[in-house]
């Protein structure tokens, strides 16, 4: 019986505690990302942003959350109930499960699996389902159009994200995220692979359906796109997932290109700061760029979006894969310990 407790129950409790430890801060981050967005956009547009609820409006996201919880959920006539409810749940779930493999610091990771990059890629490629299902189940033309747009868009940009990841993997020789971070001890990959960094960031914008690629929502032509029929908690789940995905994509960008938890320089004042703080700072920086882009760049037209994905990013990243591989082989820089 003792072995049952120590062998099964205890690890289970520990794992659950770890999950709570990860999910809690992520949810808090999501809440304050919405606040940050409104403040940053306000500053850029010379407004105040939220400033009434609590000091500096800091309690605004809490108030918004409580308000959404208290609203009534509306089912459109003819909607497909199971899928209608399932879609936001799935979207939200996917935004959270990806965090299982993200290394916050050396050794601080829930599941240090060998194929971490592939896991992230797989999870991010599933994000499209929530949107397509929501669009279809709502039984509404606007929602359906939004869902279709989103499906085409996410599939298009995933391809170039895949190639960008491959260039990084070529330089690392491993699919393990911690090893990818450790491989950047001499130089962060955003310097030698700068064009790939840019492509990855732009594709991340498209993958999270953020401006200027927010055509699935496209309020000027299809109202609010795939979640036009959603209200109350289901709507809140979509918003949480969207912002959760933004943080996730920023974390992936940080790991792949900005050296994860590593300090920018390996000298004294920098190495005093714990790795997890560096990681958070880098994520915050990428997130700020996300908001900055939203406040400055107008929305793409649909054909421009497709053209950029298939005719610019795809060939370009393909060429870079070949180029990187060629340089690595030609100069004998291939990673030594492959695993």
């Amino acid at each position: 019986m003792a072995s049952f407790w120590s062998g099964y129950v205890l690890p289970l409790v520990i794992i659950v505690a770890e999950i709570v430890l990860i999910v809690g801060p992520v949810m808090l981050g999501v809440a304050y990302l919405t606040y940050a967005e409104r403040k940053v956009m306000g500053a850029i547009q010379m407004r105040q942003g939220p400033n009434l609820v609590g000091p500096f409006g800091l309690l605004q996201p809490i108030a918004d959350g409580i308000k959404l919880l208290g609203k009534e959920m509306i089912f459109p006539a003819g909607a497909n109930p199971a899928i209608f409810i399932g879609a936001p749940v799935m979207t939200f779930l996917l935004a959270l499960v990806a965090w299982a493999v993200i290394p916050f610091d050396a050794g601080i990771v829930l599941a240090d699996i060998n194929v971490g990059v592939l896991y992230l890629y797989a999870i991010s490629s599933l994000g499209v389902y929530g949107i397509v299902m929501a669009g279809w189940a709502s039984n509404s033309k606007y929602a359906f159009l939004g869902g279709l747009r989103s499906a085409a868009q996410m599939v298009s940009y995933e391809v170039s994200i895949g190639f960008v990841m491959i260039t990084v993997l070529l330089c690392v020789g491993s699919l393990n995220l911690s090893k990818i971070v450790l491989a950047q001890q001499t130089v962060w990959f955003c310097i030698p692979l700068f064009p790939m960094f840019i492509i990855f960031f732009v594709s991340a914008l498209a993958e999270t359906n953020r401006a200027p690629f927010d055509l699935p929502e496209g309020e000027s032509e299809i109202v609010a796109g795939f979640f036009v029929e959603y209200s109350a908690m289901a709507y809140a789940l979509f918003m949480l997932a969207e912002y959760g995905n933004m943080i996730l994509m920023s974390a992936i960008t940080t790991i792949l290109f900005l050296g994860g938890w590593l300090p920018p320089f390996n000298v004294v004042p920098f190495i005093w700061v714990p790795g997890i703080i560096w990681f958070a700072i880098k994520i915050a920086f990428i997130l700020f760029v996300f908001l900055w882009v939203r406040a400055t760049v107008p929305r793409y037209r649909y054909d421009q979006l497709m053209r950029l994905g298939w005719k610019v990013f795809l060939p370009f990243s393909l060429v870079w894969v070949v180029l990187t591989a060629g340089v690595l082989v030609g100069f004998g820089w291939l990673p030594k310990n492959i695993g």
Partner: peptide, 18 residues
Amino acid sequence: AMILVIVYVGAVAVLFLF
């Protein structure tokens, strides 16, 4: 396992659904 999810779920089934 990951390739199955990426290729079949992430790409092929999306087109099916489409």
